[in-house]
């Protein structure tokens, strides 16, 4: 896979400054998202490119403060 292909793959981005710890992401896709000890969103290691998963696709809509986005490259 060259750099151009990597760049165009959908990626999950989390914004911890916006996060309020509602937990919607963990509820929808617990295999990809977690909450740290402060209750704020974190991506589980190795899952930044799991954006194609149907449950992960639900998260940007479910997050009440738009702290999770999926970029389509």
């Amino acid at each position: 896979m060259d750099a151009r292909e990597t760049g165009s793959a959908p990626r999950i981005t989390v914004d911890r400054d916006r996060c309020i710890g509602a937990g919607q992401c963990v509820l929808a896709a617990p295999e990809v998202f977690t909450q740290d000890d402060d209750g704020l969103v974190d991506l589980l290691p190795g899952h930044e490119d799991a954006a194609g998963d149907a449950h992960v696709r639900d998260v940007p809509m479910a997050c009440p403060v738009q702290a999770v986005t999926i970029s389509d490259g």
Binding site: I20, G21, G23, P30, Q35, D37, D38, G39
Partner: peptide, 15 residues
Amino acid sequence: HTVDRRMLAKEFTVR
């Protein structure tokens, strides 16, 4: 609001 909510939110995580 978010400063105060975060103080409480860590006690209400899914886990």
